[in-house]
Design a protein around this nucleic acid. Structure first.
Length: 224
DNA sequence: AGGTAGCATCCCTTACATCA
DNA sequence: ATGATGTAAGGGATGCTACC
């Protein structure tokens, strides 16, 4: 299984953990488990805590191997004066605790990565808006300049004439790209990371209105 | 091949101990 | 006394294997 698959599985699991009742029970679902009711009087073998030494031995054993071969189980049980069933149960519960801890750590890591990506995105969007402004100013300057000196420029060589009235091909390209960008994400991400749907699911980005970075961060806080 | 018994494990849950 | 938390253990579901 790839890392990405792992992460997807993790997220689905976390999602189902946080929204356990998201899907209503279907008709074909198995009947609810009948719950055990322990008679207090009969509980001769009261639940007893394992001693510190027993715990330490079990922990050491768990460090070595999370699963228990039956031979090892018997050996451990006899060494610790426990029932093999107790050792098996301890390992089962220990694996569950270990798994929960790992899930929490993975979740926290993914969350940090996400936060960092959001900050980067805001920074880049602000940069694009600033560049667009700069471009607009530059175009205005050119226009003013042309209006002031129309003849001087046109009296130059034909090559100069062409270049003065129409921007260079690279300029045209950049200009075209910037002017056709209705959504800054197109330019920023170039659809190359496949993250559009992720961002779309997270934010609504107005195509025309300028949203300062600080407001983006506020928005991020609200979402989270 | 198909049924089934036995076993291990996972998962969810309960019961109990401990502590603030 | 009480609510929160941690954990030992009960029990259903499932997968695997050996056997008939």
């Amino acid at each position: 299984m790839s890392t990405q698959d792992d992460q997807v599985a993790l997220i689905s699991q976390l999602y189902s953990d946080f929204y356990p009742n998201q899907l209503p029970p279907q008709q074909g679902d198995k009947p609810k488990r009948r719950r055990r009711r322990k008679n207090k009087g009969e509980s001769e073998a009261k639940k007893r805590k394992l001693s510190e030494e027993q715990m330490n031995m079990l922990e050491i054993s768990f460090e070595v191997e999370h699963k228990l071969e039956s031979e090892r189980k018997e050996q451990l049980a006899s060494e610790l004066g426990l029932d093999p069933r107790q050792v098996a149960v301890w390992f089962q519960n220990r694996r569950a605790r270990w798994k929960n801890k790992r899930l929490e750590e993975e979740y926290s890591k993914l969350r940090k990565e996400h936060e960092s990506l959001v900050v980067d995105k805001c920074r880049l969007e602000t940069e694009v808006l600033r560049l667009k402004d700069e471009l607009k100013d530059a175009k205005n300057e050119i226009k003013k300049h042309e209006e002031r000196q129309p003849t001087t420029l046109s009296s130059l060589s034909p090559d100069h004439n062409v270049s003065s009235h129409s921007p260079s091909s690279s300029m045209v390209t950049i200009d075209h790209q910037l002017n056709n960008v209705t959504d800054p994400r197109e330019l920023l991400l170039g659809h190359q990371f496949g993250l559009e749907s992720c961002f779309d699911a997270t934010f609504y980005v107005p195509s025309t209105d300028y949203v300062p970075t600080v407001e983006w961060l506020d928005l991020y806080d609200i979402v989270n």
